[in-house]
């Protein structure tokens, strides 16, 4: 057997990890269920409530502007809760992975399984959010999905969820103590959430800040999703998708290698 074959995850074995998470969440279904409401509350509170004070953003209603941004933000937050916190505690406190590694499961299977689970969960949220956004737009108005392209925002959201999950797992492997979370949240997640283009267009930002923002994944997630839901797709979307695919893959490979080093020594 070559070392490459040893590095590659097995689909069958990685599914056991998904199954394990399903068993966990059968007990705490409320945690999953409540996750649906986070972006919905923001949509109602900021999009419609505060949005009532905003006439339009570049010709879009504030609700239509913010909905794809909130979808991206919910993919990021889902990845952080499930990916970062959960995996950190399984890795360092509960030693769950050490137990699993005493079986034929390998680090690659565990990493791949955790990723699949994150993507499944993110996809459920994305689908539910898009349905609600559509219903709200039709029933309460103003419409927030403005073009048939919006159908593609679902697979795009799955990609965004996968990229953020890979990044979250990757970042987790660098954390050594619980206080490190504050740094990641304070200097990474929160700035991306606030300045990544979810709540206002990034061209409002000073040039220097805007350049920084354009490097971070949140910006590309929003720029992938917003043209799809608002029907303003052009060639630039390919660049954003490529960014998400490449950074996600790189993060996954790094995460797997670092987990191997942490768990097998």
């Amino acid at each position: 057997m070559t070392s490459l074959a040893l590095m590659l995850p097995s689909l069958r074995r990685s599914h056991h990890m998904v199954e394990r998470n399903l068993v966990v969440y059968r007990h705490v279904w409320m945690v999953i269920f409540s996750g649906f409401f986070e972006p919905l509350f923001y949509l109602l509170g900021i999009g419609l409530g505060l949005g009532g004070l905003v006439p339009d953003v570049g010709g879009l209603s504030y609700g239509a502007f913010i909905a794809p941004g909130l979808l991206a933000a919910s993919c990021m937050n889902g990845a952080i809760t499930d990916g970062m916190f959960n995996i950190y505690f399984k890795l360092h406190h509960q030693k769950t992975y050490d137990g699993i590694l005493a079986t034929p499961m390998r680090v690659a299977d565990i990493t791949f399984g955790e990723m699949q689970w994150a993507v499944v969960r993110g996809s459920l949220y994305a689908a539910a959010f898009l349905v609600i956004v559509w219903l709200l737009g039709e029933v309460v108005g103003p419409p927030m999905l403005l073009s048939p392209w919006a159908v593609l925002s679902f697979p795009a959201a799955v990609l965004v969820a996968a990229t953020f999950s890979a990044m979250a797992v990757c970042v987790t492997t660098f954390l050594r103590k619980v206080q490190d979370f504050d740094i990641v949240i304070g200097l990474g997640v929160m700035p991306m959430f606030l300045f990544g283009g979810t709540f206002f267009p990034v061209d409002q930002l000073p040039d220097a800040v805007r350049w920084v923002v354009q490097v971070v994944p949140m910006y590309h997630a929003v720029e992938t999703l917003r043209p799809l839901t608002t029907g303003t797709v052009d060639g630039s979307i390919a660049g954003h998708v490529a960014y998400l695919v490449l950074t996600g893959t790189a993060a996954f490979v790094v995460a797997m290698r670092r987990l191997e080093r942490t768990l097998v020594k």
């Binding site: 074995r13 056991h16 394990r20 068993v23 966990v24 509960q94 137990g99 034929p104």
Partner: peptide
């Protein structure tokens, strides 16, 4: 695995 029950610890381990 502290997130699942006693019985599920064995059932899940068997799956691995």
């Amino acid at each position: 695995d502290v997130e699942i029950t006693v019985e599920e610890n064995l059932l899940m381990y068997a799956r691995y």
